[in-house]
Design a protein around this nucleic acid. Structure first.
Length: 103
DNA sequence: AAGTAAGAAATTT
DNA sequence: AAATTTCTTACTT
């Protein structure tokens, strides 16, 4: 679990079980890869909680701790992002590039 | 405490 | 593309 300071500690402690799972799962998404809300929801327990996943991620805004930008729609669409869809696409592109390069 | 509304989705028609 | 389903959180009595 990533914890930078007291503020973040509190952040983690106030999480409900579902949120905890969601964050955990999202954090485990490898760099340069994307997962669908559905995928995350399934990993978090309920495959039908895809919408709730989006809600949880939107509440957090902790993009440096939880790479919510790697979570997109199963369709391939970007979905939303706290810092803007544009940023999301940008980040994804960069990560994708880095991923290919490292390989 | 109980009820209602809303949300960055998914699935089905 | 539109309507329906589904789960969790936040806000309102």
């Amino acid at each position: 679990m990533i914890r930078k300071n007291n503020k973040d500690k509190k952040f983690w402690e106030n999480l409900s079980l579902f949120q905890y799972k969601v964050y955990k799962v999202v954090q485990n998404i490898p760099l340069g890869q994307t997962r669908s809300y559905k995928w995350v929801a399934e990993k978090a327990g309920n495959i039908k909680a895809c919408r709730a996943v989006g809600l949880v991620l939107s509440k957090n805004t902790r993009t440096d701790l939880v790479p919510c930008h790697r979570v997109i729609m199963s369709d391939g669409s970007l979905g939303g992002y706290v810092k803007g869809r544009i940023q999301k696409r940008k980040i994804l592109k960069q990560e994708s590039n880095r991923f290919l390069k490292n390989k």
